[in-house]
Amino acid sequence: MNNHEIDYKLYGDDMQFVEVELDPQETVIAEAGALMMMEDGIRMETVFGDASSGGGFMGKLMGAGKRLVTGESLFITTFTNEGYGKKHVSFASPYPGKIIPMDLSQYNGKIICQKDAFLAAAKGVSIGIEFQRKLGTGFFGGEGFIMQKLEGDGMAFVHAGGTIIQKNLQVGETLRVDTGCLVAMTADVDYDIEMVKGVKTALFGGEGLFFATLKGPGTVWIQSLPFSRLASRVFAATPQLPGNKSVGEGGIGGLFDIFNK
């Protein structure tokens, strides 16, 4: 094993957090801002790059550059047990949903996921970028041309919104998914973008113009509530004008009020 072997326990249902148990000198890495609590004896350190083992300065610089491309911070946080007994550190999701524990050794050492889905992992897991093979996937994929890839043989924790379903696709089996609902997939899944057919469906269907086509064999994880969808609904319901009046309350009159301000 190249990665540290960590034990864990999930708590909660719709707003989960994961408690990681560290033996002496074991380390877990986490995204910035994911920490919920930790016991005395654990040393927290911010490191440059993705904190995977080896690489020297240039390796760390490359790791940091990869994280910057995916829209993440240049730095990542490590938590090391420097005590004599078992210690615990907990990480929480940034919004309501589920935490998905993944043993990368069971998925041929690689998982491809949304660029903001990574939460925490055992030290040694490499966090990189995955370029999609087809330009259409990049331009219209909803999650962008670049996705994250998690590589190694240890535990990794991915978070997503709402309820999560795991689908095991057989050879040649195809699943069409709203681009924002795709959380993660194994490396052997063929991923492409397909345009919604029909002008009326595209304009008035209430969905996006494109959806993802996932072709097996492989495993995919789907979320019922992407954060972008939740955020758009919250924004639409938030008062936008002075005097405790939202844009929607005034109807067309409220629309004119916008331009009069």
Rank of each mutant, 00 (worst) to 15 (best):
A51G: 04
S93E: 12
G55P: 06
G49W: 02
H88R: 15
Y107E: 08
V89L: 03
F79Q: 01
E72N: 15
Q114T: 07
G33F: 06
E72R: 14
G71Y: 06
R43M: 11
C113F: 01
M62T: 12
A32I: 11
A32F: 00
G33R: 04
D23Y: 09
K110I: 12
A120Q: 00
D40S: 14
T27P: 08
L119T: 01
K86T: 14
V89E: 00
G65Q: 08
H88G: 01
I112V: 15
I100A: 06
F57I: 14
T27H: 10
N81M: 08
R67I: 02
L10K: 11
G41K: 05
S90V: 03
I112G: 06
N81A: 10
F57Y: 09
M15Q: 09
S52N: 10
L74C: 11
S73T: 10
G59C: 09
V20N: 00
F48L: 13
G33C: 10
I112F: 07
G54A: 11
T46E: 12
K98P: 03
A30Q: 07
V69M: 15
F17K: 06
E39V: 07
G49F: 06
K60T: 08
F79E: 01
L22T: 06
G33T: 08
G71F: 04
M37E: 12
A120P: 07
D14G: 10
I100S: 05
E45I: 01
L10W: 05
A32H: 10
S93Q: 13
G97M: 04
D103T: 00
G12H: 08
I29A: 10
T27W: 06
G109H: 00
P96H: 02
H88L: 12
K66T: 03
F17E: 04
M44W: 01
D13Y: 09
D13R: 13
R43I: 11
L68P: 05
P101E: 02
E72Q: 15
K86E: 11
G97P: 05
V18Q: 02
I76Q: 11
M62P: 00
V69Q: 12
G83P: 05
Q16V: 06
I42E: 03
L10N: 08
V69F: 08
I100L: 15
G71R: 06
P101T: 04
C113K: 06
I29M: 13
G63E: 03
F57E: 07
L104E: 02
K115E: 05
I99H: 03
T70K: 14
G65Y: 01
R43G: 01
Q16H: 07
T70D: 08
V20H: 00
T70S: 15
R43C: 01
S90Y: 01
V89I: 12
A64E: 01
M36V: 08
T27N: 11
V28Y: 02
